Measured scan of single mutants.
Amino acid sequence: RKEMTAACTPRRRIINLTSVLSLQEEINEQGHEVLREMLHNHSFVGCVNPQWALAQHQTKLYLLNTTKLSEELFYQILIYDFANFGVLRLSEPAPLFDLAMLALDSPESGWTEEDGPKEGLAEYIVEFLKKKAEMLADYFSLEIDEEGNLIGLPLLIDNYVPPLEGLPIFILRLATEVNWDEEKECFESLSKECAMFYSIRKQYISEESTLSGQQSEVPGSIPNSWKWTVEHIVYKALRSHILPPKHFTEDGNILQLANLPDLYKVFERC
């Protein structure tokens, strides 16, 4: 597991931080080997919608929660590849102030007048994250320049770009939802926020969305749709870069829909 690298990086740093090793061990302890084997050997059937997909393993048909699986995938990559990410360069710098204002204007932020003026909160978020810029760049390849612009994001899987519609809320939550006081809790909560931002979430995906850094293989055609990215990038990574937690067998994120021999018997009677 320590050699797990989802995106190509030129050289690998050895990380011996106790906090990170502890988080890696927790993933191992909570892992479910049968689910790992199923995901490793599954045959992708198709997307139901951005949140759900169908896959077959041996004779069984499964309904998989793409949102939760991708979130767990990105969390584990962030923990196992800690401080070893490439950088996704933004085509132009994104001012943190503008991103924070967009987030505060969104109902998702939960902002009320009692929280104070949005401009003041946005300025605080910019200054707060600028103070964390060195650590964010060093460990997470999340790059913020001296003017308070976001200029780079971590490359977690080759050819995958997170849904940038979720970027404003991500920046807001970096400042408000991460435990910045304790090292282990900081790395864990920061990785979880980043994983949620990178995950496939239906509120940020339309039929026209593209999450891939590449064009489709047909010359002159439109960019790959999110469905292509889910199948050929995300579920491909799920084959080798995730140890599913045991609770996925109990919380409805992986559901067995049918045993195909039983279905064949039904059709034979028709």
Rank of each mutant, 00 (worst) to 15 (best):
R1E: 08
K2H: 15
K2R: 10
E3Q: 06
M4G: 05
T5H: 05
A7H: 06
C8T: 07
R11A: 08
R11T: 10
R11V: 12
R13L: 06
I14Y: 07
I15M: 07
I15V: 15
L17Y: 10
T18P: 07
T18H: 12
V20K: 02
L23Q: 02
Q24L: 08
Q24R: 08
E25P: 00
E25N: 07
I27L: 05
Q30T: 13
Q30A: 13
G31E: 15
H32V: 13
E33M: 09
V34H: 15
V34D: 11
L35Y: 07
R36K: 14
R36N: 07
M38E: 00
L39D: 00
H40K: 10
H42W: 03
V45L: 14
V45S: 03
V45W: 04
C47M: 05
N49D: 15
Q51G: 06
W52D: 00
W52H: 04
A55D: 01
A55P: 01
Q56G: 09
H57A: 15
Q58K: 12
Q58F: 05
Q58P: 01
T59C: 08
K60V: 15
L63K: 04
N65R: 00
N65E: 04
T66R: 00
T67H: 05
K68H: 07
K68N: 08
L69W: 05
L69N: 03
L69M: 05
L69A: 02
E72D: 03
E72W: 03
Q76D: 00
I77F: 02
I77S: 03
I77P: 02
I79L: 12
F82T: 02
F82Q: 03
F82P: 00
A83W: 04
N84A: 03
N84G: 04
G86K: 13
V87D: 08
L88A: 10
L88N: 11
L88C: 08
R89Y: 15
R89P: 15
S91I: 12
P93T: 07
A94Q: 14
P95W: 06
F97H: 12
M101N: 08
M101L: 15
L102Y: 10
A103G: 10
L104Q: 03
D105R: 08
S106W: 11
S106C: 11
S106V: 09
P107Q: 13
P107S: 12
P107V: 14
E108A: 14
E108L: 11
W111F: 11
W111R: 07
T112I: 11
T112E: 13
E113K: 13
E114D: 14
D115A: 08
D115E: 11
K118R: 09
K118M: 08
A122S: 14
A122Q: 02
Y124E: 09
Y124L: 10
I125F: 13
E127T: 11
E127R: 12
L129H: 02
K130G: 08
K132I: 02
K132Q: 09
E134M: 11
E134K: 10
L136N: 02
D138I: 05
D138S: 05
L142A: 02
E143Y: 09
E146G: 12
E147T: 11
G148Q: 13
N149M: 14
I151G: 07
G152H: 09
G152T: 11
G152Q: 05
G152S: 11
P154M: 01
L155W: 08
L155I: 14
L155D: 12
L155F: 08
L155E: 12
D158C: 14
D158N: 13
Y160K: 01
V161F: 13
V161G: 05
P163L: 10
L164R: 14
L164G: 04
G166W: 01
G166K: 02
I169G: 12
I169N: 14
I169F: 11
L172I: 07
T176K: 12
E177T: 06
N179C: 12
N179V: 14
N179Y: 07
D181N: 11
E182D: 11
K184M: 09
F187G: 03
E188L: 10
L190Q: 01
L190H: 00
L190F: 14
S191T: 09
C194H: 05
Y198C: 03
Y198M: 04
Y198W: 04
S199Y: 00
I205P: 03
S206Y: 12
L211D: 11
G213D: 15
Q214N: 08
Q215R: 11
G220C: 13
S221Q: 09
N224W: 09
S225V: 10
W228H: 11
W228R: 11
T229N: 06
T229C: 06
T229E: 07
V230Q: 02
V230D: 02
E231C: 03
E231Q: 09
H232C: 06
I233R: 10
V234L: 09
V234Q: 01
Y235H: 03
Y235W: 03
K236E: 12
K236R: 09
A237E: 06
A237C: 08
S240W: 07
L243H: 10
L243A: 10
P244E: 02
P245A: 04
P245M: 03
P245K: 05
K246N: 12
H247C: 13
F248C: 04
D251E: 12
G252K: 06
N253C: 09
I254Q: 01
I254E: 01
L255Q: 13
L255K: 10
N259A: 10
P261I: 06
D262M: 06
Y264S: 15
K265P: 14
K265I: 04
V266H: 14
F267K: 15
E268Y: 05
E268R: 07
E268N: 08
R269H: 07
